[in-house]
Design a protein around this nucleic acid. Structure first.
Lengths: 226, 226, 226, 226
DNA sequence: AATGAATGAGGATTCATTCAT
DNA sequence: TATGAATGAATCCTCATTCAT
């Protein structure tokens, strides 16, 4: 979607441009981001932006898509298909949190697509963004069911839906001011939001998912477990 | 925070203004909302807006706070403190969904506070918004634990955190284009998002919460525990 | 020129209004003075201003004229026609300085008539303002000449012109920020502008005028003076 | 202080802009000057003004400073340091009058700095404006004293102060409506203000200065004093 | 291909004045 | 007569985009 010119410039320049764009859009939001400021931060002439992209919108879309790509690579990279559902889920949550901490801009961009006035972007991005994770989660859950690791009566789609829901809320709590404040209010954290608190919360969320997915304890042996 | 003049105008006019403001801000977002258009939609002169509010910001804040108030009344109204946790939770989810369906604007405003560039608003609104629900959920859960209706080993704060997280994601799915698309993707809904689908999802989310909170059930011996 | 209504209100109220108007117009200038703020400072409803005056312009003119009246009374009051030119001139300079110090607003209004964009006001005020002083000075100088106190070859009109010029510059130095800065630069005053410095300057200005008006020393006795 | 962009445009365009700005600001005053109108008069887009200057204020300051520069060059240009005080003073008065007649806008801008509400500009401009002339006048007078051309008992600072005062009033009479009216009133000029009248007045003002500065003249014994 | 000056629609806010109460 | 809410023209400034160099 960007012009071919974008491919012709030095990769370092392109990367600088795209990462500054991601940072700025994430920080200010789409409307409040100034193309002139973006150009100057990226060390590029204002006019050049329009040599690379048709418009601010196109640039924004491209940055979002690229962020999605990066996020995916970071989160799904190193994932071994041989692992069981639980292992894979935990991997995703932990890698996701790590990536979001080092690159908050991409999650902020994601959250922004649900903001008011961003519908045109949602139309173009949302399905593409969600499909991958939805398919992945559903597949893992189905496998889990098949392997007897997951309750057989689970509604796989719904489970994927709320597992991802928890993921979103959790990640949002790491980057969005609002969700940070919310987290602190719920968890009654007074001082700084330290990594330990986050980690505990992460662990507990994963445990929650486990406890819901796990097949009901075998009927005859209800006693004596744990 | 609004000027006193706001209190002196005819309630019908004020209500019209505030509801149009909520609608417009929710639809377009803060930055993209034009005060002139708002004025004309509200049937008021542009200058009059500034007789009522110091600035666009103040108006926005007021509309958000008012939306919060309305939402609370709608959601918590009719709630009987004698009900048990599960009943109360279900009431809130169902009333919440109903209110959000009839007044999507207020949830959209809520979602917007977490958007990029809205940090100044988050600082002023978020705690105020979240505290009420957080306190309510924690109190109900604690009661539930005391009554033996909820697992004794539950971390109440964390539980409140993710219950509300599910609530947010669910409600967002009713109003935000992005979350609608996401819902349809996860639940594989092809046609229109009908009320039945929503209701099923609601029911299943409530069931999920039940299943997590419920004490591990020693089937034969429900009596006599604790 | 103001509406009759102005005469019907309580004198205290009217005085308050006019003095606040003078202060505000003097401080901010015509354009930057806000009728609403003026009303509120004067303890009067905004609408009432328009019951008393047709327009901001009319109010401004009235305030200027009233200031002129007050200034005159203050400056020319207590002046004894029996005094000689020099005595009368000194009286005027000293009374002028005293009045300007206690009511800077009126001199500021005067200075403002010469500002850009104030031509419509100049057309209506300037002659009226200047005529009185011009006539007075010329008459005194002519008398002085007739009495042999003033050089017979004096061009009375020109002398009146520059005597008043010195008066204006001097008084301006007491109230206008620009002329204050100028005074301090010329007189090399570092600290605060104290009353003594002002008084010295006043005395020296009067001496200057004396020295110019005084008839040339009698030819035969050039030696031995001073 | 202006943006670098200003230096990069065609000089003709820049000159046109600055001279139109000077004219308009001088005519209307700071507050009443409309940036849009200025732009259109200068044959420039509104937005371009903001490519050259941060704000209306900055533009105004720049125009004033530039006017000061031009005035100085016009007035002090062609002045021979070998001339005596009187010659130099006369040069300055005559050149000043000529410049003010051909470029009234700059003197109007100067006068405006002393208007109400212009204090922020006075703080930034006044000392800079006055220092040069003050220093010049004092230096010339001191030289005059040293050369025996000026009364030894002269208070140089005060003399410089009122000589410049007369200069200001005189020049103001050429450009400000108010001071024009005042001049006509004092000098009883009925018809148009012709150049002859101005010139006479100029000559007489210079004569006045001479008469005050000149050492008391012991006619027979000019030699041998001090 | 890169640059950055030029453009002008757009948008928040102010304020003199009007007018219904 | 007093009031102050209502009005909308006016004004500063921003910013995406274009285009000449």
């Amino acid at each position: 979607m960007p012009k071919e010119t974008l491919q012709k410039i030095k990769p370092a320049k392109r990367d600088k441009l795209l990462s500054e764009a991601a940072r700025l859009f994430a920080q200010r939001g789409y409307a409040a981001t100034d193309m002139a400021e973006l150009a100057s931060r990226a060390g590029v002439a204002k006019g050049s932006l329009y040599n690379y992209f048709e418009s601010k919108q196109e640039l924004y879309l491209y940055v979002c898509r690229q962020g999605l790509e990066l996020s995916r690579r970071a989160v799904y990279g190193g994932l071994d298909p041989a692992w069981d559902v639980y292992h894979q889920l935990e991997h995703i949550f932990r890698r996701g949190a790590a990536f979001v901490r080092s690159h908050p801009e991409y999650l902020l961009l994601y959250l922004n697509v649900s903001a008011a006035g961003m519908e045109p972007f949602a139309e173009k991005l949302s399905r593409q963004v969600e499909k991958h994770t939805a398919d992945f989660l559903k597949a893992r859950l189905a496998e889990g069911v098949a392997q007897g690791l997951v309750r057989a009566d689970l509604n796989v789609n719904q489970a994927a839906f709320w597992i991802n829901g928890l993921y979103i809320i959790f990640m949002a709590s790491l980057v969005s001011r609002h969700f940070q404040i919310r987290l602190r209010e719920y968890l009654e954290i007074k001082g700084r939001l330290n990594m330990r608190a986050i980690d505990e919360q992460l662990t507990s969320t994963i445990a929650l998912i486990h406890s819901v997915l796990r097949p009901a304890a075998p009927a005859p042996a209800r006693r004596g477990r744990r």
